[in-house]
Design a protein around this nucleic acid. Structure first.
Lengths: 299, 299
DNA sequence: AATATCAATAGATATTAACTATGATAAAAC
DNA sequence: GTTTTATCATAGTTAATATCTATTGATATT
């Protein structure tokens, strides 16, 4: 039977394409790693690594087996995590991935209670675009994602957290600024400022706006919600913001936030983790705390 | 890092609930296994096994970790199989699960070409009820299933093989015996002989018949299609048989097989394997051969 | 009370993964 | 064209440890 150590060596080579550095990463000497890899190749009767001078690379067979090896190592990590979590259920490290249009506005509401109620869990927060988060969840770099649900997010465990309305943001001098509600029809022919590509908020907000007959301002795409907010304040256009991003920001920045009349555009914020993840107790605890924490934020 | 050997010991104990027998299964002495399990428990700081005199059992923590351990061992097996299959892609052992209402009638059509075209693969055939097959596929005891598709079979890779019509079987003296086609309405108030519980053909055929107003003969449930066939021949009632079970059987047994008018009742025969299974080449080859082999059997 | 069953312990042995030191080879530098 | 550097392979040694056999201890069963 294969040894887990061998698989670690193999994946390290795949990562670094360099025996010395891979050996360092495994905390062994280079000859040790070289020798073990050779033995592995002999046992499997396969050449896994192409040793060109100054250029180490994997053979096709090597690539394939590295994938399998990562699966095994992930399962082994799961075993150890499950063991630790049995010893002390709500403890250990938990890596949470969030998207940039949610993290800075939601975290102030949820992290205090997470940190106090689940004090033995160390929360690591990672901000990234949706697709990267999903990849990192799959590979095990992240344990939990909190993001707006999209229908193609299959193959994960899903927990609904809350529905976040999008609201209209205008400068005080804008024609819509003093309405108490914005209707679908109000959007007709309005010019909308948007985020740059890759933000799921962009796709979602634009979908809503276009179907209402609004137009995107193609001359500008913001890299963050804050940029967008400043543009709106400078009377360059209007935009849609998630409601969490509008709390405690209104007075000082001369922006009017106006809710939509029904049907309100919404983001369905969910928590995802891998199906079969070893620490479901921690996940469920987080889900409960987040639900508690946002209770009452949305009417 | 945990060792795979430890996980094998743990799962062996889970299987045999007996140190001696588990040790035999692992090809080591009993003290070796005892010692390693103890070390494992110390490392994890968890009691995994309850050692009652003459009664070895797992603690709840043990049960949980055994599950995780099996995952790891499955992944490791996958790695080794992937390696072997890279060495010689279409070779090795392949365990195929089939249901009893399909296997004896389909295998004569498909095994000859599988054995000749994929001569280096050793095919092991397992006949069992659907739910058992799915469990065994999940746990890795089986590599491939061939059975009628049901909507709850999620989480596997699926390949459509062929659609098998069901046909009406009657004795020659039955009122429907000499029709060239049976319609939905012909079933009204007919008495249908059925298989015993657990056969998916029973559920499927009955679903069709009941919706047509037919009635089940509650006084009798057959344990196999062959019993059913004899009952029909003895003029005890009529039944629905999958078409493959009617080929080359008609003349000698005095049964009339009558096709249905559209919409024909159908079984959608699919091939399932685990997603991410390491030997997809072999699976695809089997899929292709089976599709070839049944081509022309159904008009 | 005697015996059988079964897991734990003790001590010896063999395997092997790891180390340090060195060698070999080819690209890069002068 | 020679030297230097980078990089992986080889050799020999050491330390760790999984395994074995033999035995003990404890508890049901007869």
């Amino acid at each position: 039977m294969i040894k887990l150590r061998d698989l670690e060596y193999l994946t390290a080579i795949a990562e670094y394409k360099h025996f010395g550095r891979a050996a360092d990463a495994c905390f062994v000497s280079q000859p040790t790693l070289s020798g073990q890899i050779q033995k592995l190749e002999q046992r499997l009767k396969l050449t896994l690594i192409e040793r060109q001078p100054r250029n180490v690379m994997l053979t096709p067979a090597g690539e394939k087996l590295v994938q399998q090896a990562r699966q095994v190592l992930n399962a082994a990590r799961n075993f150890e995590e499950a063991a630790k979590s049995l010893l002390d259920p709500l403890s250990g490290d938990l890596h949470i991935g969030l998207i940039p249009t949610l993290a800075p506005y939601a975290l102030p509401h949820i992290m205090p209670s997470l940190n106090s109620k689940l004090a033995k869990i160390n929360f690591y927060l990672h901000e990234n675009k949706t697709q990267d988060l999903l990849d990192q969840l799959t590979t095990g770099k992240l344990d939990i994602l909190i993001l707006p649900w999209l229908p193609d997010m299959t193959g994960f465990e899903r927990y609904d957290l809350f529905n976040e309305p999008l609201v209209m943001a205008t400068s005080p001098s804008h024609v819509l600024a003093n309405k108490s509600q914005v209707t679908f029809d109000d959007l007709h022919n309005q010019k909308i400022l948007t985020l740059e590509d890759g933000h799921c908020l962009r796709d979602q907000a634009m979908g809503y706006c276009f179907s209402a007959g609004a137009e995107e301002d193609h001359s500008f795409r913001a890299t963050s919600l804050e940029t967008l907010r400043y543009m709106v304040a400078s009377n360059m256009g209007i935009t849609l913001l998630p409601q969490l991003a509008t709390l405690n920001y209104a007075p000082q920045q001369h922006i009017h936030y106006i809710p939509f009349a029904n049907p309100k555009p919404m983001r369905e914020i969910v928590l995802l983790c891998r199906t079969g993840y070893a620490r479901m107790e921690s996940v469920r605890a987080v889900v409960n705390e987040v639900r508690q924490a946002v209770k009452g934020l949305f009417d």
